[in-house]
């Protein structure tokens, strides 16, 4: 009995060691309900921008990508519990998350822009927005940004439970503008009949502290070697234009982060 126990323990250690050293596959956690970044095709295959980018990175560092689906708010706990080794699920690099996990260099960032009725004089400045009603999605970076930068200066920032409602109220005239990711605005509103009288109002908003440097791959803090490998791969894929090519498949707005900090 004791012998069996010893063997079992030995085996467990051996397999753990094997996992740690022979990284022939990279298990990546993803929440597949967020097109065009990640979603499932009709046949159940994962597809989307993050999936293509992840696969490109895997082939650069010569490992096999194994995608593991997980709910978004469970991604960080699962990463720490070693259910997978990396997160690539349109996750913004933020200070708050940075306290728990490490991030690769930013790969891309999705610009956020105001949408308003065509011909409206609105721009993303406090002066232009004073007294106006701006809609944002609850719990989003846009909400944090609008509250921190605008709400204190006489701009009415209304949070909504879902983005469709924001567009509905924008159309109904309850809102003067809405702040969301530019790509979301094109796909979800501006390209549809309902959004034909609306357009982007002013340039994308920028804020290093709230919006952060962009979206990157989340990793455990002690996996420094893997982080270096992935950063190298990202830099190469940016330099040879692979990422730009993939991005053009999915987005009508430029997304790839220019420089590695």
């Amino acid at each position: 009995m004791k012998a069996i126990k010893h063997i079992a323990v030995a085996l467990a250690f051996a397999s753990a060691a094997a996992l740690a050293q022979s990284a022939t596959e990279l298990r990546i956690g993803v929440e597949a309900e967020y097109p065009p970044f990640e979603s499932k095709s009709a046949s159940g295959q994962l597809q989307g921008f993050d999936i293509d980018v992840g696969n490109a990175i895997c082939s650069k560092i010569k490992v096999k990508c194994v995608w593991v689906e997980n709910s978004f708010d469970g991604l960080i706990p699962a990463l720490k519990a070693r259910k997978f080794d990396a997160i690539h699920s349109a996750m913004n690099i933020t200070e708050e998350r940075g306290r728990t996990i490490a991030f690769s260099d930013p790969i891309y960032s999705v610009p956020m822009q105001l949408v308003a009725r065509k011909g409206s004089p609105i721009t993303p400045t406090v002066a232009a927005l004073k007294g106006k009603h701006v809609g944002v999605l609850q719990g989003s970076t846009m909400e944090t940004y609008a509250k921190a930068r605008w709400a204190g200066s006489g701009v009415d920032v209304a949070s909504y439970a879902d983005q469709e409602q924001v567009y509905a109220d924008l159309q109904a005239g309850r809102l003067d503008a809405s702040l969301q990711e530019s790509q979301q605005a094109i796909a979800g509103f501006l390209s549809r009949p309902a959004g034909k009288d609306f357009g982007f109002a002013g340039p994308a908003v920028e804020d290093a502290k709230i919006i952060g440097p962009g979206i990157g791959i989340g990793l455990r803090k002690n996996d420094e070697a893997l982080r270096k490998q992935i950063n190298q791969a990202i830099a190469q894929l940016k330099a040879d234009g692979t990422l730009e090519g993939i991005a053009r498949k999915y987005f009508q707005v430029p997304v790839i982060s220019k420089t590695a900090p």
């Binding site: 708010d73 960080i76 949070s159 439970a161």
Partner: peptide
């Protein structure tokens, strides 16, 4: 109430959940 954008108690709880992931 949050359906009508009214920031009631549950809305704050949802905010905290999405900001901290401590559901």
């Amino acid at each position: 109430a949050f359906t009508a954008t009214v920031p009631d108690l549950l809305k704050v709880a949802r905010d905290v959940n999405s900001a901290t992931y401590q559901s």
